[in-house]
Write a protein that binds this DNA or RNA. Sequence first.
DNA 1: TATTGGATCGCC
DNA 2: GCGATCCAATAG
Length: 193
Amino acid sequence: MKLSRDFYEQPTVQVAQQLLGKSLVRVHPEGVTTGIILETEAYVGLEDQASHASRGLTPRNAVMFGPAGFAYVYVIYGMHHCLNAVTEREAYPAAVLIRALQPCEGVELMRARRRKQDVGLLANGPGNLCQAFGIARGLNGIDLCGDVLFVEDQGSSPAEIVVTTRIGVAYAGAWKDKPWRFYLADHPGVSKR
DNA sequence: TATTGGATCGCC
DNA sequence: GCGATCCAATAG
């Protein structure tokens, strides 16, 4: 069943871990794509120097300051998109970055969008999964409790979770060492360090 | 208005 | 290892 608002209102690190193994669903005019969430990262509060919210509210990060259960989508390096789920209470900026998926439904559509055949290369990384799922800036602020982009809990058994530091946040001072990256142990480490 | 650098990716 | 590519944030 579809995850409801109260799931996302939990502490961010908890949401990041609990999203692993659940299914991300994207309903698009071209077709439906789904995939199992394999890798996540938590970005927590104003203090977290790795977070876009660390310097206060701006037009870009405004969604992070809103209520839980909405998508924060932004452009990075001028050419890639990243998808986050906003967490915790309104006015407290926090989110979970979805970093990798195992493609499930809509593999052919993903192949066409990615121009790659290998299933292992379709959604292995935050920018790649957005391309595969047709997620772009137009979805920034969309409700994850709606019918376009959401997460389903298929009641799968808990799997072993690996915990590491986050990727690409060397600039974040002491916060770069927070153990806030999570991935499923029985899958190859999806992101390169 | 100008400058700088990024929660990345894929090829060299 | 490095360039692509452009927007957002900051400084002037």
